[in-house]
Amino acid sequence: MIINNLKLIREKKKISQSELAALLEVSRQTINGIEKNKYNPSLQLALKIAYYLNTPLEDIFQ
C-alpha cells in the first residue's frame, strides 16, 4: 500500500487544495480524492505535484 503524505506536505507549505488544483490544472475534487487515497494519480500528475510542492516524489508517495 502506498503511504500518501500529500495533505501533510500541502498544509505545511500553506497551499490550499484549490490553489494546488489550479496549478496542476485539475479539480479540487481530484486533489481531495488523492489525499483520501480514493484516487491514485498518474505518474505525470504525481511528478507535477512533486514539482509544484518542491518536494521529492518519494516524500509525497511512499
Score class of each variant (00 low, 15 high):
36 K>I: 10
26 V>D: 01
45 L>E: 03
25 E>H: 15
50 A>H: 02
38 K>N: 10
62 Q>D: 08
10 R>S: 01
62 Q>F: 14
56 P>A: 08
54 N>D: 14
57 L>S: 03
53 L>C: 03
53 L>P: 01
14 K>A: 09
61 F>C: 04
25 E>F: 09
51 Y>P: 00
60 I>A: 02
59 D>N: 10
1 M>Q: 12
38 K>V: 12
18 S>M: 13
42 S>N: 08
22 A>T: 14
20 L>C: 03
48 K>W: 06
11 E>T: 12
4 N>L: 06
14 K>L: 09
50 A>Y: 02
21 A>Q: 02
32 N>K: 14
10 R>L: 06
52 Y>N: 04
2 I>Q: 10
13 K>P: 01
2 I>H: 10
54 N>K: 11
31 I>K: 01
21 A>L: 03
38 K>F: 13
50 A>M: 05
26 V>E: 03
55 T>A: 08
15 I>L: 13
4 N>W: 04
2 I>G: 10
13 K>W: 09
38 K>L: 15
53 L>Q: 00
6 L>K: 00
22 A>R: 15
28 R>C: 11
51 Y>F: 12
62 Q>H: 11
49 I>F: 03
8 L>G: 09
7 K>R: 14
46 A>L: 09
33 G>R: 15
23 L>I: 11
28 R>E: 14
34 I>G: 01
31 I>P: 00
2 I>F: 12
57 L>V: 13
16 S>M: 05
36 K>Q: 15
49 I>W: 03
59 D>V: 11
10 R>K: 01
27 S>T: 11
9 I>Y: 10
24 L>M: 06
15 I>H: 03
49 I>K: 00
9 I>W: 08
14 K>P: 03
3 I>K: 14
28 R>M: 13
6 L>E: 00
9 I>C: 07
8 L>H: 12
49 I>H: 00
46 A>H: 01
23 L>S: 08
44 Q>W: 12
49 I>S: 00
49 I>M: 06
14 K>N: 14
38 K>I: 14
52 Y>S: 05
46 A>I: 06
9 I>N: 03
3 I>P: 09
11 E>A: 08
27 S>Y: 03
40 N>W: 15
13 K>S: 08
39 Y>S: 07
35 E>Y: 03
35 E>C: 04
7 K>Q: 10
38 K>Y: 14
30 T>G: 01
39 Y>G: 04
12 K>G: 10
2 I>K: 12
22 A>K: 14
42 S>Y: 05
22 A>V: 10
50 A>P: 00
33 G>M: 15
53 L>A: 02
52 Y>H: 11
1 M>T: 12
30 T>E: 08
55 T>I: 07
44 Q>R: 13
10 R>D: 01
53 L>F: 07
34 I>K: 01
16 S>Q: 05
7 K>G: 06
2 I>V: 14
33 G>L: 15
19 E>P: 01
62 Q>Y: 12
4 N>F: 06
24 L>Y: 01
6 L>V: 07
25 E>T: 08
13 K>R: 12
30 T>W: 11
44 Q>K: 13
15 I>K: 05
37 N>R: 11
44 Q>I: 11
31 I>L: 14
5 N>M: 07
9 I>Q: 04
59 D>Q: 13
14 K>Y: 07
9 I>R: 02
30 T>N: 03
18 S>P: 06
43 L>G: 06
6 L>Q: 01
31 I>N: 00
59 D>S: 09
16 S>W: 03
1 M>I: 14
31 I>Y: 06
17 Q>V: 14
8 L>C: 14
36 K>E: 15
31 I>V: 11
24 L>P: 00
14 K>G: 15
43 L>A: 10
26 V>R: 02
62 Q>S: 12
54 N>I: 05
57 L>D: 02
25 E>C: 15
13 K>N: 11
48 K>N: 05
50 A>F: 03
39 Y>L: 13
31 I>D: 00
15 I>F: 08
37 N>I: 04
24 L>I: 08
42 S>G: 10
23 L>G: 08
28 R>G: 06
20 L>E: 00
13 K>A: 11
27 S>A: 06
26 V>K: 02
50 A>G: 04
47 L>A: 09
8 L>T: 13
57 L>G: 02
11 E>R: 10
49 I>E: 00
52 Y>E: 04
35 E>M: 03
8 L>S: 14
29 Q>P: 05
31 I>S: 00
14 K>C: 11
20 L>K: 00
29 Q>V: 09
55 T>V: 12
4 N>Y: 05
40 N>G: 12
11 E>W: 07
16 S>P: 05
25 E>Y: 10
13 K>D: 02
32 N>F: 07
32 N>R: 15
18 S>C: 10
52 Y>C: 08
20 L>I: 04
26 V>T: 06
33 G>F: 14
40 N>F: 15
41 P>Y: 05
10 R>N: 01
57 L>N: 02
11 E>C: 09
45 L>V: 05
59 D>P: 02
17 Q>H: 04
61 F>Q: 02
37 N>E: 06
27 S>R: 08
33 G>A: 15
56 P>V: 05
15 I>S: 01
36 K>M: 15
9 I>V: 10
58 E>M: 08
18 S>G: 12
46 A>V: 06
36 K>S: 14
48 K>M: 08
54 N>L: 07
19 E>N: 08
3 I>E: 08
15 I>A: 02
34 I>E: 00
47 L>Q: 11
58 E>D: 09
29 Q>T: 11
35 E>V: 02
33 G>T: 09
1 M>N: 11
43 L>R: 13
6 L>P: 00
16 S>G: 06
55 T>M: 08
17 Q>A: 08
61 F>A: 03
25 E>N: 15
52 Y>V: 14
12 K>S: 13
32 N>L: 09
55 T>D: 02
45 L>A: 02
43 L>Q: 09
9 I>M: 07
47 L>E: 08
31 I>F: 03
9 I>L: 09
30 T>F: 14
36 K>D: 13
15 I>Q: 04
23 L>F: 13
23 L>D: 05
57 L>A: 05
16 S>L: 05
7 K>I: 05
5 N>A: 06
40 N>I: 15
19 E>I: 07
34 I>C: 02
39 Y>T: 08
4 N>G: 05
16 S>C: 04
26 V>H: 01
22 A>F: 10
13 K>V: 07
23 L>E: 06
9 I>D: 00
41 P>N: 01
59 D>I: 10
41 P>M: 06
51 Y>M: 11
23 L>T: 06
26 V>A: 03
27 S>M: 04
60 I>C: 03
7 K>P: 03
9 I>T: 06
39 Y>P: 01
13 K>Q: 12
54 N>G: 12
19 E>W: 07
50 A>D: 00
45 L>N: 02
